[in-house]
Amino acid sequence: MDRQKTYDAGVSGDEGLRCARCGEPLVLSPVTFTYLGHAFPVELPACEACGLVFVPEELAKGRILHVERSLEDK
């Protein structure tokens, strides 16, 4: 048996997230994470007015953490 690592596919988008700074609705927008010389283009909810990006907790504690550790351990 292989050990499997699974992650959530993401919470539903119809929760009506709004920007804490300007109150505008967040819309799925292209965002690039960079870490230790690597770039990862993703799509995240962002405020079109001020550019604030929302990073869901399960993404931060799941895929992003795993990628960071992989790069650190390389």
Binding site: Q4, K5, T6, G10, F40, V42, P56, R63, V67
Partner: peptide, 23 residues
């Protein structure tokens, strides 16, 4: 490990294909 991400569903709050591909 075998990396087996759940594919994103319609209406998902984010898309992280690049992270999945790397992992």
């Amino acid at each position: 490990e075998v990396y087996a991400p759940t594919p994103p569903e319609e209406g998902s709050l984010y898309r992280a294909d690049a992270l999945d591909a790397f992992l």
